[in-house]
């Protein structure tokens, strides 16, 4: 990918981060840490890769994305807003009574959301059903799902980990947001799901390990997944929880708590600085 496009995507991803934080701050509740870690991936998918139409969110043959780690809805809503599915100004209504921006993604209520999620382990299985539907209908749309690394502790993830290779769902790509932290702390201390890559390999997946914040690596992983026939692909993304907000990075305390006004302002100014620096490169 050329450097200019990477810079443009980085700017968008940091706007998505701002949207996510604005949502969580306005709601005084939500999950900032894991939202910030997947912002680059979501930006790449929705701005570079996926066949979608903000004017026609239910387009039949669109690519689908199921946010299996549904608690990071602020990032999904942010990217959908930036992509034009709805007004980014709506972010301040996140989790508010009467708002369509529910605490976790809801199918049919939020333009661009392909499945209701929030209960961990379920979304990736739903994605398997979507990929199977495409196979049954000989359609070429692709299905993406994003999981948390802590989410891998849910047993039903491994039911689906058997299913997708068994039915050769090579139209399905999952991303594990491997930021290493879950609510109660270090994933290896709470309930160790590692080695994540070897587990998926053993279950029959094509596995790629990348840096979640490197657009070239994201792009090549997705291209490799598309070129891989006969098996689904699991992309294990080494990520930084709370990415690009200094005091949130790698701190599990920011898994599920909202910033106060001072923290919010600092986070926004840090992100604005980053955006300013990126814009100067254009």
């Amino acid at each position: 990918m050329d450097a200019k496009r990477i810079t443009e995507l980085s700017i968008i991803a940091n706007k998505v981060r701002k949207d996510a934080l604005t949502g969580v701050y306005s709601a005084a509740a939500g999950h900032p840490g894991g939202s910030l870690s997947i912002a680059d991936l979501l930006t790449y998918l929705y701005f570079e890769e996926m066949n979608i139409d903000p004017k026609n969110p239910t387009m039949e043959d669109r690519d689908r994305l199921v946010l299996s780690k549904g608690h990071t809805a602020p990032a999904l809503y942010g990217v959908l807003a930036e992509r034009g599915f709805f007004d980014p100004a709506e972010m301040k209504n996140l989790r508010k009574f009467g708002s369509f921006l529910q605490g976790h993604p809801v199918l049919g209520k939020i333009p661009g959301v392909d499945m209701s999620t929030g209960s961990l382990g379920q979304g990736v299985c739903v994605a398997g059903g979507m990929a199977l539907a495409a196979k049954l209908d000989n359609k070429s749309y692709r299905v993406y799902s994003i999981l948390g690394d802590g989410e891998l502790e849910e047993g039903q993830v491994w039911e689906q980990a058997m299913f997708a290779p068994h039915y050769k769902l090579d139209n399905m790509t999952i991303f594990v947001d491997n930021n290493g932290l879950q609510i109660d702390g270090d994933i290896t201390k709470v309930m160790n799901p590692t080695p994540i890559d070897k587990k998926f390999e053993a279950f029959g997946w094509h596995v790629i390990v990348i840096d979640a914040h490197n657009y070239n690596e994201i792009e090549s992983a997705i291209n490799e997944a598309k070129a891989t026939k006969g098996k689904p692909t699991a992309v294990i993304m080494k990520s930084v929880k709370g990415k690009n907000v200094s005091f949130m990075e790698n701190n599990p305390a920011w898994h599920g708590s909202a910033p106060n006004e001072e923290q919010y302002n600092q986070a926004i100014s840090e992100l604005d600085e980053i955006i300013k620096g990126l814009e100067a490169q254009l």
Partner: peptide
């Protein structure tokens, strides 16, 4: 689906979102 009822219900849901 194999002996995997949780996955089965969710796969059924995914199929349904695609018109099945």
């Amino acid at each position: 689906m194999g002996i995997a009822e949780a996955d089965m219900m969710c796969v059924a849901a995914g199929l349904a979102t695609c018109g099945k």
